[in-house]
């Protein structure tokens, strides 16, 4: 299957809209969940709405990667390896610190931005090797 430049462009659009929607929904949920005193079951259901937006964004990102050439895919792959490694090491280390040094508990919500940042840094690092 060949992915056209249009598919790639559509993938970028899907990713951008999906992540924006995800951020807006997360903020909206945080703001509204307190004052509205929603039923717990409804709140559980609403919590998954931003995740659907993020899932849609993720599918868009996969379209983007499929539309890239082989070197770009290799660089993205290296970036993903950096993201997985660094996120695993940092969350595991912080988990140990929470247990043994009684550092404050952190929300698991921070894992996603951490993956994003380490993935971007990993890709930038990988790009340098091929310049």
């Amino acid at each position: 299957m060949t992915i056209s430049a249009d598919d790639k462009k559509q993938g970028w659009r899907q990713f951008t809209i999906g992540m924006t929607l995800y951020a807006v929904l997360i903020i909206g949920l945080n703001v509204l969940s307190g004052p509205l005193q929603l039923d717990k079951r409804l709140l559980i259901a609403l919590t998954f709405v931003p995740i659907l937006a993020a899932l849609w964004a993720m599918l868009g990102w996969i379209k983007v990667v499929r539309g890239q050439d082989e070197l770009q895919q290799k660089i993205v792959s290296e970036g993903v390896h950096w993201a997985v490694g660094l996120t695993a090491l940092s969350t595991f280390s912080y988990g140990l610190l929470e247990s043994y040094v009684n550092l404050p508990r952190l929300s698991m919500m921070w894992v996603v931005p951490l993956i994003g940042v380490t993935g971007a840094l990993g890709q930038a690092f990988a790009w340098r090797r091929y310049r």
Binding site: Q68, D69, E70, L71, Q72, W127, Y130, R131
Partner: peptide, 22 residues
Amino acid sequence: LGVSRQTVNALEVGKYDPSLPL
């Protein structure tokens, strides 16, 4: 070739070896 300019540059300077199809 249907690749990025950066990929052509990486090939030319020998930083990247292409796949057989490329």
